[in-house]
Amino acid sequence: MNKVVKLEDLKPLLKDGMTMMIGGFLANGTPERLIDLLIDMKVKDLTIIANDTSFPDRGIGRLVVAGLVKKVITSHIGTNPETGRLMNEGKLEVELVPQGTLVERIRAYGSGLGGILTPTGVGTVVEIGKEKITVNGKKYLLELPLGADVALLKGSIVDEFGNIYYKGTTRNFNPLMALAAQTVIVEAEKIVKVGEFKPEDVMTPGVLVDYIVKGG
């Protein structure tokens, strides 16, 4: 089974108004060629779920600068002044979520859970509008699952079946997002034949991956 496709083959899958999860932490582990494709296609009104909005010239930051994003659900926007500017002008909706909560909401969706209970945010503005549940005398917030139409991931080495190996800190949100979207696309720094790396070195099983493209 070979899931490798050309970048252009992905065009019919990427549509205006979609909710997209994009891997990476300040652009480390973000699929830049897939970002290029979205910008070339001018796919607009996107809802982006990602750790941060990166820097204006890198990763998700470039989508924000290109004006393609309607809403971001993220933990941090401070490194991209354009996100703040568009938010203040009312052109971009920003939902801020604590980082550990964001990744658990994604994991919950991908794992078939109805939500997670976290102590993070109790007694802060994060708790507004959320159900509070006491377990063994301790207060938790019920945080709901978060899924997407498409997940765009970056892998360091990917085999043709879609098994992914991540180098260094590029793993971050990628393996969790692989579980939480209808369509999962991975941009591979290097593509290898099936069997070229050991099953125990696989960090995201290929069963979760729909399409693979060659990245830089």
């Binding site: 993220t74 401070g78 920003v94 801020l96 945010g121």
Partner: peptide
Amino acid sequence: KMVPGMGGAMDLATG
């Protein structure tokens, strides 16, 4: 004035 987001700070301070 300054809305960078909480990043991991809330989880760190809580946990």
